[in-house]
Design a protein around this nucleic acid. Structure first.
Lengths: 341, 341
DNA sequence: GCGGGGGTGGAAAGCGCTTTCCGCCTGCGA
DNA sequence: TCGCAGGCGGAAAGCGCTTTCCACCCCCGC
């Protein structure tokens, strides 16, 4: 039997052709009515018939076909290290909000901090012809996929990053250096001289920058590297204190590690901030709920994500650098250096 | 060298045709070598030439074109209320992990708890011909988009949900009811009789189920509805206590609200658990870091997300129901009912 | 009254890929 | 020696949509 308008396509979906037939117009007209990109207009009466038919058939355009024909897709990619980490979740949420304003869908790629996976996802985003991609994860020092980024850009997609990822791409640059410095100055002002730092993998640019800011004020702090997580912070704190019991303050390079540090100090029966002060970085929501409430550096994460997405979607030439401020938030986990050692 | 075969397509991307030409084979052969779905094999020598050419040109298949030709895409959708909420972030992370094993990309849609947006995103996921979609957000009581779900399924996509979303679709069902009951039994065993409940919007199925479990043990608790967030919990707690100062325990229907409750009680100078016990639900990572550490109900969120994604991707017939256990985690925020009122 | 122009609908040519045929070539058996 | 089967490369027909032309109609002006 001939394919009348009510016959479902193989996939089960309604096609534009079916809508056109149902409305008694040509394919071209239906397309113009439903997705017409301005250029041409269609008479009221016909347009009406088409929209009615489309609604009745519950027609939804086949996005891949549209992407193909228009050679322009409606998806953007967001590359994060781990969406379950509140840091990235906040950034992603901000970015997604802006994407929605632009009627774009967001493809989220969780790289698990694996540079190989990161490269891989970037290629797949290129395969999807994503209109743009946001590199939200911190760069690794000595960026191994600059080439893949270039390939993406070359094939017509925009790229923006949070934190430096190389020249030529739009960047929102949180003031990691300044933040590290703020914490250092704060602790020094409180009289601390023996300060330990617990930190994530040395390869992360974020880590390097925060640390650089800190050491611009406090030279040669005691340093322990661990996972950039709560557990990492807990382990690092124990190790740090066993090696350097003289410390009066600990700077955790992110709030997650700070939470772990507080847990470790509680286990060790070491009062904060009376005996040891603790400071974090990021000002995640959890910071206020820790005990004592955490002194930290506030980054406006959702806003950073949103701004990066806006950089991706406007049509200005690339290579811009938007700084994002870091702000010291003093709470209860830092106090005057104890003199009772 | 002549840039014949290397002439970039309009979008700037390399096409299969270019690869084929460069390798001196036909389009069909190139396709078979690079994406051949098993059926046919190509002689070693030719295959080699094709793969080499593809690598040199940094060829990546045009995913939309592939979706069109194969009428099957490689993306799945995940619908969440708010990716910045750790509850959803954990579920999404679990789901994404499984998706990666299957070489699928994940389109995350943030619905901001807006049923309209939810419907809308579902339609757009259908437009993308997403292979499957995971409804991770709690249903609203009286599900307003069953129709849209049906349309999605009808057009060939699979649908799974976390928590009941209607019959016929695969469901991972966390034991919300049982969890509510566990908390109730725990509090009653500790001697509490005057228990207040602070809760999210009445329209959320999750809320209704947790509450039902609780009231199956404790009848007619004092109830305050608020946002399902920390701030909501804080406000609700203040209101609850001002109206019912006789309460000896508060059950917050999620951990975020519980964090708010603890904050409020701290502000009111009300010791926990000595004067008032507090219990939460979800066992988010933050639960251990609250002070006192939160008694709550553990849901294996990442695992739930992963299982739901597996339901979507195997080829079994739909309509299955996978229960996910809830487990009581007793920490320090609950204690024997105070008798000093 | 007739020619020309503006506006609107439709036919058709792709977009980049998959996949069905088709036909050639090789090698084997009679 | 010839026929035939099997294997493998290539031509071509779509997949559902956009968009360029083309054709047509109607209206206006001379």
């Amino acid at each position: 039997m001939p394919r009348t308008s009510s016959t479902r396509a193989p996939g089960g979906a309604v096609t534009l052709q079916q809508v056109a037939t149902a409305a008694g117009v040509s394919l071209a007209t239906a397309s113009r009515v439903l997705h017409g990109s301005g250029g041409r207009r269609v008479a009221e009466a016909l347009a009406e018939r088409v929209t009615t038919a489309a609604a009745e058939l519950r027609y939804v355009a086949h996005a891949p076909a549209q992407s193909l024909a228009r050679s322009r897709s409606t998806v953007v990619g967001v590359l994060v290290h781990d969406i379950a980490d509140p840091y990235f979740a906040a950034i992603a949420a901000g970015a997604m909000d802006v994407a929605r304003e632009h009627d774009l869908m967001v493809l989220v790629a969780n790289t698990f901090r694996d540079p190989g996976l990161e490269r891989d996802y970037l290629a797949r985003l290129r395969a999807q012809r994503a209109r743009a991609v946001l590199l939200a994860g911190s760069a690794f020092v000595g960026e191994p996929f600059a080439e893949e980024v270039a390939a993406f850009a070359e094939s017509g997609g925009r790229v923006a990053a949070i934190g430096a990822h190389g020249t030529g791409i739009d960047t929102v640059e949180p003031d990691q250096y300044g933040g590290g410095r703020l914490i250092a100055e704060h602790l020094v002002a409180l009289g601390h001289r023996e300060i330990g730092v617990i930190t994530g993998p040395a390869g992360l640019a974020t880590v390097a920058q925060r640390l650089a800011g800190f050491t611009s004020v406090v030279t040669g702090p005691r340093l322990v590297h661990a996972d950039f997580t709560r557990e990492g912070g807990r382990a690092a704190t124990r190790e740090l204190l066993s090696r350097h019991p003289e410390l009066t303050a600990i700077f955790a390079l992110n709030d997650l590690m700070a939470a772990g540090a507080l847990a470790a100090l509680r286990e060790l029966g070491c009062p904060v901030p009376e005996q040891i002060s603790v400071a974090g970085f990021d000002d995640l929501p959890v910071a206020t709920d820790l005990t004592p409430a955490l002194t930290t550096v506030r980054l406006q994460l959702a806003d950073i994500g949103a701004r990066a997405m806006r950089l991706l979607l406007d049509d200005e030439p690339g290579g811009r650098l938007v700084p994002a401020p870091a702000e010291l938030v003093v709470r209860d986990s830092t106090g005057r250096a104890s003199t009772l050692h």
